[in-house]
Deep mutational scan, measured.
Amino acid sequence: GTEDLKEEAKKALKKGDKERAKRALKKAGLSEDQIKKFIKEVL
C-alpha cells in the first residue's frame, strides 16, 4: 500500500538512493511537488 511505499522511500533515502525513493513515491501516487517535499522532509 501507500504507507509501505513511503517506508520504502524513506529507507532508500537514508541509503542515499534518491532514484529508488522517487520510483516508490510515484507508485504511491504522489505528484512531483509532493515527492520533492517528501524528500526534503526526510533528508
Rank of each mutant, 00 (worst) to 15 (best):
K36L: 13
K22S: 08
K40P: 04
L30V: 02
G1C: 14
L5Q: 05
K6H: 10
E3S: 10
E8C: 07
K37Q: 15
K37R: 12
I35S: 02
L13P: 01
K15I: 13
I35K: 01
E32K: 08
E7H: 08
K22P: 00
V42G: 04
G29E: 02
A28G: 03
G1H: 12
K26Q: 14
K15F: 09
G16D: 04
L13I: 10
K37Y: 06
L30C: 05
F38W: 08
E7G: 06
K18S: 12
F38S: 03
A9T: 02
K14S: 10
A21D: 00
G29S: 02
E32V: 09
L30Q: 01
L25F: 01
E8S: 06
K14I: 14
K10E: 07
A24H: 08
I39D: 02
K37A: 15
A21P: 00
R23I: 14
K15T: 12
K40S: 14
A28E: 03
K37N: 15
A28S: 05
E8Q: 10
K37F: 06
E32W: 10
K6E: 09
K10H: 06
K18V: 15
K10L: 12
K18N: 12
R23G: 08
K27P: 00
L25M: 03
K27N: 09
G16N: 06
G16A: 03
K36F: 07
Q34P: 00
K22H: 12
K40W: 15
L25Q: 00
K6P: 03
E8H: 05
A24T: 08
L25A: 01
E7C: 07
K37D: 15
K18E: 13
K22M: 14
A21Q: 00
K27Y: 04
G29P: 00
E19Y: 05
K22C: 11
L43C: 12
D17I: 02
K14L: 15
V42L: 10
L43T: 06
L25H: 00
L30S: 00
K27A: 13
S31K: 04
A12N: 04
G29L: 02
E7Y: 06
S31R: 04
I39C: 05
I35L: 05
E8M: 10
